[in-house]
Computed example of a mutant assay.
Amino acid sequence: MKKTTISDVAKHAQVSKSTVSQYLNERYEYMREETRERIENAIEELNYQPNNVARSLKLKSTATIGVIVANILHSFSTQVIRSIEDTLNENDFSTIICNADDDPEKEKKYIETLLARQVDGLIVFPTSGNRELYKRLIDSNFPIVFVDRYVNGLNGDAVMLDNEKAIHLAVEHLLTNGYENIAVLTTSIDTAVVPRVERVEGYKSAMERFDLPIREGYIKSMDPPFLKKGIDELFQLENPPQAIVSGNDLTLMEFLKYASDHDLEIGRDVGLVTIDEVSFAEVHYPSLTTIAQPTFEMGKKAVELVLHKFESEQYDEPQIYRFDPSIIIRKSAEKAGARI
């Protein structure tokens, strides 16, 4: 079957090819409504499929946004990516998703690959590397938005959780349920990944807020393979913690494995609150109290920002957009005897 061309559409709608082209490129400010309807009907009746490759070259647009995620294993990351993909699809943009595995070199390779494919913008969950590369992109006004983290020293838009508030919610809930000796677990802060650093600092400020001592031995920040050893050190202390705040889903999994291996009953032997809502939180025994991030809203905001940069010639001063966490109270932190 012969493929329908733009000439066929123009002939069927009784207009010129240039008028059809203007319609396809959504330049119809001076086009009569009746003309637009004729072209729309012709496209539908002839089942015309525009040549998007040729069209994108002409418009200098591929209608594609690249998404680079530091570590796709995080439930937070997969939830935000789903929101990003859905929102871009609603706006007729395609998505290319790349997982950097927390490796700056891999991240750099993906950035270069996506730029070579002429993506219209980038949404990035950045590693701690590639600052100079991001700086060049921002200085050239390339549309880029950071999610979950910002890059120190760069003036770029970022969509993030209010990490201090998240930790304060967790600590306050544990105190309300009678726990005072509270430890915090995060993945390593050696690379200065912003959310991890902010959560540790938030833990310290929460201790101060509630007039509790800050015990450095209660702060464990290390990569997942070493967390088991760190957790064991916590419970070998003369005064082991009564409760744990888990900084993300990866530290949560390590703690749950440790608790199972050492017959620690969560909710009886140790209280637990974790940042990030995980799929099994409600069905786990006991059910897990979580600090949830508004992942859908955060993903939607990231898309809104990057498309605005792509579509608008107006320069807006970059800023960090902080989203409020919420606590989902279940059973893992229940204990008689409120402190506050």
Rank of each mutant, 00 (worst) to 15 (best):
T295N: 08
L252W: 08
I291T: 01
E254N: 14
K229I: 15
G271Y: 00
Q236K: 14
A243S: 10
G299M: 02
R268T: 15
A243I: 00
F280Y: 15
T251P: 11
A243G: 03
E282W: 09
H284C: 11
A302T: 06
F235S: 09
I244F: 00
L272D: 00
L227I: 14
G267V: 03
I231W: 04
N239S: 15
V273L: 01
K229S: 15
S287R: 06
Y258S: 03
A302H: 08
T274F: 00
E277F: 08
E304D: 12
K229A: 15
I244M: 00
A281M: 12
T290C: 10
L256E: 03
E277P: 00
E277S: 12
I275K: 01
F296V: 15
V273E: 03
K228P: 00
N239R: 15
M253Q: 13
K301A: 13
S246F: 03
T274H: 00
L234C: 08
F255Q: 07
F296H: 13
A292F: 06
H262W: 08
E282T: 14
L272F: 02
V270A: 05
D232R: 13
K301Y: 01
Q242S: 12
E233N: 11
F280A: 10
L227G: 07
E254K: 15
L252Q: 07
L234F: 07
N248A: 06
S287M: 07
T290Y: 04
F280C: 06
E254H: 13
I275W: 03
D269I: 06
E233Q: 11
K301F: 03
F235W: 03
L288N: 09
N248I: 11
T289M: 03
V303N: 01
H284L: 11
F255H: 02
F280G: 03
L264Q: 08
L237Y: 10
D249L: 02
P286N: 13
P241Q: 05
L234I: 10
M253P: 04
K300W: 10
L252G: 04
E297D: 13
A259V: 08
F296Y: 11
L234Q: 05
G247T: 10
G230L: 12
A243N: 01
T290E: 06
L288T: 04
E254D: 15
L272H: 07
L288A: 09
S246G: 11
G247Y: 00
D263S: 11
E277V: 06
D232W: 08
L288V: 14
S260D: 14
R268D: 14
P241E: 10
P286T: 10
M253H: 13
